[in-house]
Design a protein around this nucleic acid. Sequence first.
DNA 1: ACCTAAAGTTACACTTGTGTTACTTTATAA
DNA 2: TTATAAAGTAACACAAGTGTAACTTTAGGT
Lengths: 187, 187
Amino acid sequence: MTRKFTKEALYEVTNDLLIQHGYAGLHFGLIAERLEITRGALYKYFKNKDELIIDLMIYEMDKFLQDLKVIRQYKHFNQQLEYLLDIIFKYSRIHQNLSIVYQIPTTKHVNEKVKQLEIRHHDMYAYLNAFIELGREEKRIHTEFPDHLILGFIFQTVNIPNQTNLPEKQWKTLIMNFLSQGMQADL
Amino acid sequence: MTRKFTKEALYEVTNDLLIQHGYAGLHFGLIAERLEITRGALYKYFKNKDELIIDLMIYEMDKFLQDLKVIRQYKHFNQQLEYLLDIIFKYSRIHQNLSIVYQIPTTKHVNEKVKQLEIRHHDMYAYLNAFIELGREEKRIHTEFPDHLILGFIFQTVNIPNQTNLPEKQWKTLIMNFLSQGMQADL
DNA sequence: ACCTAAAGTTACACTTGTGTTACTTTATAA
DNA sequence: TTATAAAGTAACACAAGTGTAACTTTAGGT
């Protein structure tokens, strides 16, 4: 019998439903309905929703990391920042959903997979720290700011709603300028 | 019979549980357990969790607005910004939880209360728009940035985790500096 | 053609949360 | 002192999600 849904479609749907309903509000019934299959089919592939969610995060993190490692090809900090913003926006859903991992009860035999996710998280920080270090070397980052504050500001930008629906390119330019110079008017 | 819990304690617990478990994960059993009462007691005051959540949001918004209106007493934009950051941090939980209102099904006869909440949201923007306008008049805001981008950056700051546990005052100063001048080093 | 194994469905027992009602407790005011 | 009403509890029927196992479907190899 041929499969009625692809892994990509499943992850797509799950990501959307996670954003809409949150961790506790997501359940196999919802996912099955969207994929036009029945709940039971999902249990052929995943023990429970926690396993599905972690698999999804690992999958998206792997794709993100593949893109992120390319950042080293850019020589200058500002180029790297622009590229980082590009891929953060490209993978905005995973960055909106990553924090829900902490809502998964640790008593659900997914600990092994959570560890795998943490490895990727750790790998991500290796790239990000190198990125920040370059910025400091190029004297583009004020010394008073700790790394995690800079990264916090950058990653939170995906949660700022583009209310006036500016074209994505223009929106990113504004974000980039704000991050570099703040709200201040020209000097 | 004397009450076993105050409104303040109930809202305190509900706010915490909302942050921990999200909208779908919150239920009367959890709240009752924390307050050391039984579920049934809560139904004496609220038809369901949606009503409780909206009442909570209205209550917190009212307190926030009372503080926010004082912003007009500060003459200069930078003073207003500092004050705004103070109260956003003071009411950080409500700003972390406000967005979950959109997860409440609109078919649960809480529409009247949702409207009341929207009124307060609207009032809030009246103050915020005046604040931004002052910033533009004082030429502290670059003209290229739309209002909602500035406000988005300001309100997202509550979600940046203070990982190194810097003292609150120092953290706020850094946030303030970043918002004003961006990450850039001294000019 | 037909066998088989992967894919999917259906039905069932179980668990957890909901909302209501009848009941119990207790401070207080007549 | 005792009546009462507000506060809280306990128990019930119901609704919704979970996980499993027996069953059905069907593409593809022989």
